[in-house]
Amino acid sequence: MSTSFTPFASFGGGMLIGLAAVLLMALHGRILGVTGILSGLLRRGDPRDWSLRAALLLGMVLAPAGIRLIWGDWPSLQVPVPTASLIGGGLLVGIGVSYGGGCTSGHGVCGNARLSRRSITATLCFMAAAFATVYVTRHLIGA
């Protein structure tokens, strides 16, 4: 499934992601890592902490509807993989980010922005693994 290069939308969208991370740190003093926010939600804890996480995630989930409202159209979302890959991939992602202590947002944006050596290492590992995996699934197995 081919997609077109969208430099302006992607850079602009990236800036919004960075802005959200800076605002969360400035106001609430927290790292904007979806892994961390989600794992805290799956744990019973301090209700004030839980409600903050829930509000953040609710905002994220509402975003496509907001875009639909302003733009008139849903953001494009195409899934070129079978159901089994979504489930298997989801399980691997969940286990991996749990042990790795973060994902693209927590390590890739926030940690790298703080020049954390852990986050730079994590980012190099997951990017390299994803490039290798897609090469295997698309050019070795799927060819």
Partner: peptide, 15 residues
């Protein structure tokens, strides 16, 4: 950190 991140990358590349 390393094994977890690699596992995440594999899952990301699959899904």
């Amino acid at each position: 950190l390393v094994a977890g991140s690699i596992t995440f990358g594999i899952g990301w590349g699959i899904a």
